[in-house]
Nucleic acid binder design. Sequence first.
DNA 1: CTGAAAGCGCTAACAC
DNA 2: GTGTTAGCGCTTTCAG
Lengths: 372, 372
Amino acid sequence: MKNGPSSSTRTVGHARATTMKDIARALGLSQSTVSRVLSGAPSVVPIAAETRERVLVEARRRAYRPNPLASGLRGARTRLLGAIMGEILGPFAAGAMDAITAEANALGYNTVLGNAHGQADEAMAIRTVLETRHCDAILLIGDTRDQPRLLEDLRNTALPLVALWQGVALDGISTVNVDNRLGATCVLEHLGGLGHRQVGFVGIANRQGDINQRKLAYRAFMRKIGEEVRDGFIEEVVHHPAGGAEAAHRMLRLPERPTAIFCASDVLAIGALHAAQNLGLRVPGDVSIVGFDDISFAAYTVPALTTIHMPMAEMVRLAVQEALRPDVGDAVKNFSLLPALVIRQSSGRVPAQRRAPAAHRSIGSSRPGLSR
Amino acid sequence: MKNGPSSSTRTVGHARATTMKDIARALGLSQSTVSRVLSGAPSVVPIAAETRERVLVEARRRAYRPNPLASGLRGARTRLLGAIMGEILGPFAAGAMDAITAEANALGYNTVLGNAHGQADEAMAIRTVLETRHCDAILLIGDTRDQPRLLEDLRNTALPLVALWQGVALDGISTVNVDNRLGATCVLEHLGGLGHRQVGFVGIANRQGDINQRKLAYRAFMRKIGEEVRDGFIEEVVHHPAGGAEAAHRMLRLPERPTAIFCASDVLAIGALHAAQNLGLRVPGDVSIVGFDDISFAAYTVPALTTIHMPMAEMVRLAVQEALRPDVGDAVKNFSLLPALVIRQSSGRVPAQRRAPAAHRSIGSSRPGLSR
DNA sequence: CTGAAAGCGCTAACAC
DNA sequence: GTGTTAGCGCTTTCAG
């Protein structure tokens, strides 16, 4: 279904943009003088205040915009921030990209996108966005540990490089992470405090970074409360509500099902919530379900999701500034930000008939691991 | 909380990329010959098959990558697709961006992002992404009718320009839309068929395009079934689950509340679902709630959301190809794609005690408007 | 068929 | 302080 072209030939014209040369000619100056005042370089060489003013005025009048292609060619900055997205998708990525472009814009940068998920795109992503596109810096977003070539290529680069939500420190690359272990421990202790001992974990297959940290925290928690992880209590699926739903479905039909499920992301938790209620189980009456990330939907699921809040804005600001700041030394830095437990309605006391003997109950009641 | 830099100075080196000059020198040819072979231009001037071959081989061997800055400067294509995002956000936008970058990549293009939402970014977005960045084409994504300057500026451009999800035809600009009226009519007829006559509408404030079309379809439906739109039955809020929740909350506490609510997007519907159940109402037992878009979460809400499926992939493919295809004439085209009704669990028969007299009931039972 | 040369808009020595 | 002069890597006349 496609309406026929409604004619109308596009206006071509589009008067050529003003160049420095134009300004120079108009003012009877040399192009390099114009360049000196316009190119920002605060005061490499002194310029007569009056000349500077004249140039500035004329530039404004003619709506001068520097041509980044030209300055880029000449070796100057391209004011382009390359963003290479790993496996993360969905609302989380959307929020992240939004924050990133906003932050980059504020610093006078644009953002080029390169997706590294999907098939053999990894090479493509890096080649195209980076080598080819001459970005001033690269942001690696999400877990990319499974793409060794990408990381390798990236490391052989003189560009500032910052990895966001990688989940772990990367050799030779600056990282900005949330403290995944701490976050996971917080929700788990919260569940423990509600009396849960049979806790399941839904993770994401093939994740070496953030999600893996959350899994490790889960294992540590189970160890700490002295419960073994039963068969079927750990599921690793695709990062999609469907994955969460399938995992939860399987887990909740186990002969001895868990009383709580810790999903490694809200996206999975949303699927789990759906599956549980499809099975006729009440949440949190029959089973508690918690997530991680605190995406915008988390407060609006039914019931509202208990989860770990990600300090998204701060993380993005930190990462972007770290990548774009010219003043940093070449040192690689690893930032780890504090997550926060958000208790909503999807977590509740363990069902009475499944409570552990009193002797064990006190273990989970210690304050959530906010110390460290 | 920030660990001290763990030292390690970044490797600088990064051997300069191969240029055409390098290849020319290595082969004892002139740079322009190399350019002729490598720049793709299929056969402007004949080139000796053997020479071409030698160049190609050497280029591959040295992993030659053209420098888009240089070709861009010289007036050639930059292979950059500019994407200017209007008000749409969240998972829908994420899915869209994903599809867009994928499609663009397939055509050898990268995507630059410019967000036009937020404060006075409109000017910024266009200036920076377009004038400044020398894209080969621009994709306008989502409703931007409220940003007159943006559209005006864009129109004064020689660039191929395609508007996606604008919701309406735009003078002088090619558009790719879903048939919003038809989609909305489908869900509404579906509700009608279930006996609903008191239907509320939750829209988004200040939207002139897609969402407005959905509202018009709502009005037309109410007219058709001979019901007046009662006070409080139309809410227009911010595009966020919170907006949907507040709107639904107000609407469902009306003295005579609607038996069904049509939300103009799934994001709003998710909020509405939450609000209804928070109020102790069963969905669809007490109230039916339907959405529009069929985002990935729609199948996993509780209960699963009845909605209108957006042919995202086709729309994106169409838009990107239309924008990037060199072979198109300058004609502006308006594509309108067919949506599909997806019936899930959030819609059901009108509650018995609120059924309309039998005489009226038959009206809604005509087949959904899938003809046309 | 191929080479020489100009120039896209800008930056950065290097002069004066 | 400001002008001159080279290019950055590439496309594109214009000559052979």
